[in-house]
Design a protein around this nucleic acid. Structure first.
Length: 213
DNA sequence: CACCAGGCAAGTA
DNA sequence: TACTTGCATGGT
């Protein structure tokens, strides 16, 4: 195993090049996107975020006090809109109450503290918390998602249904140097690979860039 | 038409 | 702990 994790990274980076994630302009926008993209195609999240921008709603002060139903209507294209409106405002209320609405100071918390604070929010689980830590707060934690699981299992690095989030995360973090920029690229590369070569509906892949590892 | 997409929480046994 | 279900739009 030792260097399979590093080798996969080198292969993906060589094949696709740098991905320059997260697709979002500010840490706040990245945080919002992380909640909206739960179990949802990113293209639909883009529509939701565009709506928020077009109506000048994409700011902390506005979103935190917007009636949930109004927020829900604007994020409709990304699905689960009632649920996500509530989840997003749960997070914003925490920042409002505990950090006086200062998103930057919230994101400046030490990694373990920030992660715990995020996980305490109803509607934020491990992937969303880690995405915010890595992509909004630039802290060194590896993000695991459905693509990550699928790619690992298709390359026989984990059992298809026998690995939970923490286990997969540990496989990556144990096999890699603690490097925020590299964690950022690596997860983005896995998503890129997943979208283009490792779809659920495409069980086998003869042209996978990882073939032969 | 069926299936899938950068999850999560609550309920049940 | 380990399964099951609800949440929902939009693309293929």
């Amino acid at each position: 195993m030792e260097n399979r994790i590093s080798e996969i990274y080198r292969r993906l980076f060589g094949f696709f090049g740098p991905q320059s994630w997260w697709p979002g302009e500010t840490p706040f926008e990245i945080m919002v996107g992380a909640v909206l993209t739960q179990n949802t195609a990113w293209i639909n999240v883009e529509k939701a975020i565009k709506n928020l921008k077009d109506f000048n709603l994409l700011s902390f002060d506005i979103l935190v006090s917007l009636p949930p139903q109004v927020l829900a209507e604007h994020i409709r294209p990304c699905g689960y809109y009632n649920l996500k409106a509530g989840r997003l405002q749960n997070l914003l209320r925490l920042i409002d109450e505990e950090f006086a609405g200062d998103v930057d100071s919230f994101l400046d918390l030490e990694l373990a503290v920030l992660r715990q604070a995020l996980l305490a929010v109803k509607g934020i689980g491990r992937e969303t918390a880690d995405s915010i830590c890595l992509y909004a707060a630039n802290k060194p934690i590896f993000v695991v998602d459905a693509y990550t699981h699928r790619i690992l299992s298709r390359h026989d690095l984990v059992l298809e249904d026998g690995a939970d989030y923490d286990e997969v995360q540990e496989i990556f973090m144990a096999g890699l140097p603690e490097d925020t920029a590299m964690f950022n690229e690596y997860h983005a590369l896995l998503v890129r690979l997943g979208k283009e070569y490792c779809k659920k509906s495409k069980p086998k892949c003869d042209i996978c860039p990882l073939k032969g590892l």
